[in-house]
Amino acid sequence: MEPKKYPLPPFNMETAQQKVQAAEDAWNTRDPEKVSLAYTIDTEWRNRTDFINGREEVKQFLKSKWEKELDYKLKKELWGFKDNRMAVRFEYEWHDHSGQWYRSYGNELWEFDENGYMQKRFASINDLPIAETDRKLV
């Protein structure tokens, strides 16, 4: 049995914001192993058009993502929560191997188990090509 991943649901404003900040901090490490540990072993994801099932697939997905999305920097914001669910908006910036920068915008719906691990993550994301001088998340 894995240790509890605090804070636990049901969330209040303070604990919901803590959970969002913890996710932002983890994703900004760009460490697939570390990030994957926030999710249940059998987590379900939809990321754009990818359907990902289980922590091992999450690790592989993130490894591939950060091999493509270089110098990734993310900012998340809580939009709402109830019980064990949250809605989060985010934006992140990255560049590809050719040097083209992008700002990616999106929304996520999260659902947590009773031990504080995310069991469902559904993300809708759009990419906007930007000039390096237009970056906001430095």
Rank of each mutant, 00 (worst) to 15 (best):
L128I: 11
P32Q: 04
S104G: 13
D71I: 09
Y39K: 05
N47A: 10
F61I: 04
S64R: 14
K59G: 00
L74I: 08
L70T: 01
K136G: 01
R30K: 13
D96T: 10
P3I: 11
P32T: 04
E132Q: 15
W101K: 03
K68G: 07
R121A: 06
Y92K: 08
A123K: 05
Y92S: 09
D113M: 00
D83C: 06
S124Q: 13
W27S: 00
W110E: 06
K75Y: 09
V138N: 15
D134H: 09
F112C: 01
T29C: 03
E44A: 08
Q119M: 13
W66L: 03
K75E: 15
V138Q: 15
G106Y: 01
E44K: 12
P32V: 05
R85C: 08
L70K: 07
D113P: 02
W79A: 13
N28T: 13
P9T: 03
G54N: 04
K34V: 10
I125Y: 00
E57W: 06
Y102I: 04
I52K: 02
K59D: 01
F51K: 13
R55N: 01
M1K: 11
E93R: 07
M118H: 02
A38Q: 14
D71S: 15
F90Q: 06
V58K: 06
P7Y: 05
P7W: 03
Y92F: 15
L137H: 05
E91P: 07
N47Q: 11
K75I: 13
F61T: 07
W66E: 06
E69D: 12
N107A: 12
G99R: 00
L70E: 05
D31L: 06
E108V: 00
K65T: 15
R89N: 10
E24C: 11
A123T: 14
N53I: 14
G106K: 01
E56M: 00
L70Y: 01
A22N: 13
E2H: 14
I125E: 09
R46G: 04
L74C: 05
T43C: 15
M118F: 08
R55C: 03
T133F: 08
G116W: 02
S124G: 10
Q17G: 11
W27P: 01
W110Y: 09
L128F: 11
E24I: 09
D83T: 10
A123C: 10
